[in-house]
């Protein structure tokens, strides 16, 4: 209970800080905007990377997200969460890219090498062998995620990698909450199918 309380306080403080930073950025304070970039760059970059699965491209898209966010500053409503705005722009940019460039992308297909045995993730400090297995497993999860259609992949990453709330996802995508929940559930099922070799007991 204490943890929940302190976590809520932290969220509240973060929201307050975001509002202050946005208001200062709106008046042309570049340092305030740089602080926003620093606070959210890892999350935006991770989202873009999980969507397009290409390092330099993801970095380029993430930078563009912040540029667009800067241009949209005059219309930003500080009552809404900053992450919702950022992920909305990131979502649109990534989907645009996937729509226009998809045929040129390397198709991600499963190969014989992907058929790894089920691996237990270590709880304690991993041995080098475990590290290798862990790396291979994460690689397999990345491939499986990339094979999930973008509309489901997007909500899966927002929910389970970036840990956005349903409200924030609904706000980011401009969708009703029910649709978001259904989409996440469908995405989980698709991911489970893609990871069948790893999750089957």
């Amino acid at each position: 209970m204490l943890y929940i309380q302190s976590s809520m306080n932290e969220q509240y403080d973060n929201a307050e800080l975001d509002i202050t930073l946005i208001e200062q950025s709106k008046t042309g304070n570049e340092t305030a905007f740089e602080t926003i970039v620093d606070r959210y760059r890892r999350r935006v970059l991770t989202y873009c990377h999980r969507m397009v699965r290409h390092e330099s491209l993801a970095e380029d898209l993430a930078q563009e997200v912040f540029v667009r966010f800067y241009q949209a500053l005059p219309r930003i409503d500080t009552r809404k969460a900053v992450v919702s705005y950022l992920f909305r722009i990131a979502h649109n940019r990534c989907l645009d890219w996937l729509r226009t460039r998809r045929p040129q992308m390397q198709t991600l297909t499963r190969t014989e090498d992907d058929d790894q045995p089920t691996v237990q993730l270590p709880d304690a400090r991993p041995t080098p062998e475990e590290e290798v297995l862990r790396g291979e497993l994460l690689e397999a999860v990345e491939k499986a995620l990339a094979a999930v259609p973008p509309r489901y992949r997007s909500v899966l990453v927002m929910r389970h990698v970036e840990e956005l709330s349903y409200e924030e996802i609904a706000e980011a995508l401009g969708l009703p909450m029910g649709t978001v929940k259904a989409r996440i559930h469908r995405g989980r099922e698709k991911l489970q199918q893609e990871l069948r070799d790893f999750v089957n007991l």
Binding site: L45, V141, H160, V199
Partner: peptide, 20 residues
């Protein structure tokens, strides 16, 4: 159900990507 849970748990273990 355990398969579904495993899939979700594996996804949640994906690491963050650090920027340059």
């Amino acid at each position: 159900f355990e398969r579904l849970l495993r899939a979700v748990n594996l996804l949640a273990r994906l690491p963050s990507v650090e920027s340059g």
